[in-house]
Measured scan of single mutants.
Amino acid sequence: RPFRVCDHKRTIRKGLTAATRQELLAKALETLLLNGVLTLVLEEDGTAVDSEDFFQLLEDDTCLMVLQSGQSWS
């Protein structure tokens, strides 16, 4: 499924495809050149996407933000 993913400053944006939350996090880690533990949130309001069940309910092309440890949505 297609998703739009950005870093916490919204300066890097990438289109990625993934079937699972874990797959998307792995691709974001590599594509956005990030490291460490990542958190996935909705870009629009910062809602945490912390379960596979919730991830599977997201629509195609949902905009997501990837946060590294110590970063927060704004």
Rank of each mutant, 00 (worst) to 15 (best):
S72Y: 10
T47K: 10
V37C: 15
R13P: 06
L40R: 03
D45F: 04
L34T: 07
T20A: 01
Q22H: 10
G46Q: 08
F3Y: 12
L16P: 02
T11A: 15
G46T: 06
Q71S: 04
F54D: 12
L67N: 05
T31S: 14
R10L: 03
A48S: 13
S69W: 08
D7H: 01
Q68D: 06
R1F: 03
F55V: 03
L67H: 03
L64Y: 03
R1S: 13
S51R: 11
G70R: 06
L42R: 15
D53S: 11
L67W: 00
E44K: 11
K27P: 02
P2M: 15
D60N: 13
K27A: 09
S51D: 13
V41K: 04
R10Y: 02
N35C: 08
L42N: 08
Q56I: 07
S51K: 08
E52H: 01
Q68A: 10
V5M: 08
T39W: 06
S69H: 11
L25M: 14
L25K: 10
L25T: 08
R13S: 13
L16K: 01
F55A: 08
A19S: 14
D61Q: 10
T20H: 07
D60Q: 13
L64W: 03
E23Q: 09
K9V: 05
E59Q: 11
C63S: 12
L38K: 04
G70W: 05
D45H: 04
A48W: 07
S72V: 12
T47R: 11
R1W: 01
D60S: 14
V37K: 13
I12L: 10
V5A: 14
L32P: 07
E52S: 00
A28C: 10
R21S: 06
A26S: 14
L58R: 02
S72D: 06
E59D: 12
D61F: 03
L57M: 12
A28T: 10
A26M: 14
G36C: 02
E44L: 07
A48V: 12
M65N: 02
A28Y: 02
G36T: 07
R10N: 05
L16F: 09
T11N: 11
G15W: 14
E43N: 05
D50A: 08
Q22G: 15
C6A: 04
D60G: 10
L57E: 13
E23N: 04
E44S: 13
V66E: 03
G46R: 00
A19N: 09
E43I: 00
L38T: 09
S72A: 03
H8T: 06
V49P: 01
G70C: 05
T39G: 08
K14S: 11
L33T: 13
K14P: 04
A26R: 08
D53A: 08
Q71E: 14
E52N: 06
S72L: 09
L25S: 02
D7Q: 00
A19T: 10
D45W: 04
N35I: 09
W73F: 08
D7P: 00
Q22K: 09
F55C: 03
F3I: 06
L33F: 11
L67A: 01
V37R: 11
L33R: 11
G70M: 06
H8S: 14
R13T: 15
L40F: 06
D7E: 02
L24H: 02
A48I: 13
A28D: 03
L24D: 00
L40T: 07
A28F: 01
Q56E: 13
T31F: 11
G46E: 00
S72C: 14
K27Q: 10
E43R: 01
S72W: 06
L67V: 03
A48T: 11
Q22C: 10
R10P: 02
E44H: 15
V49E: 08
T47W: 03
A28P: 01
L33E: 15
D50H: 08
T39S: 11
Q56D: 11
N35E: 15
K9P: 03
L24A: 05
D50Q: 12
T31C: 14
L29R: 12
T47E: 08
A48R: 10
S72T: 12
T47P: 02
L34W: 10
E23Y: 00
V41R: 04
F54T: 13
L33Y: 09
F3N: 01
L67F: 02
W73P: 04
S69K: 14
V66A: 07
S51T: 09
R10T: 01
A28K: 00
E59L: 07
K9Q: 09
A28G: 06
T20F: 04
C6I: 08
T20M: 03
S74N: 12
G15T: 14
Q56S: 13
T20G: 05
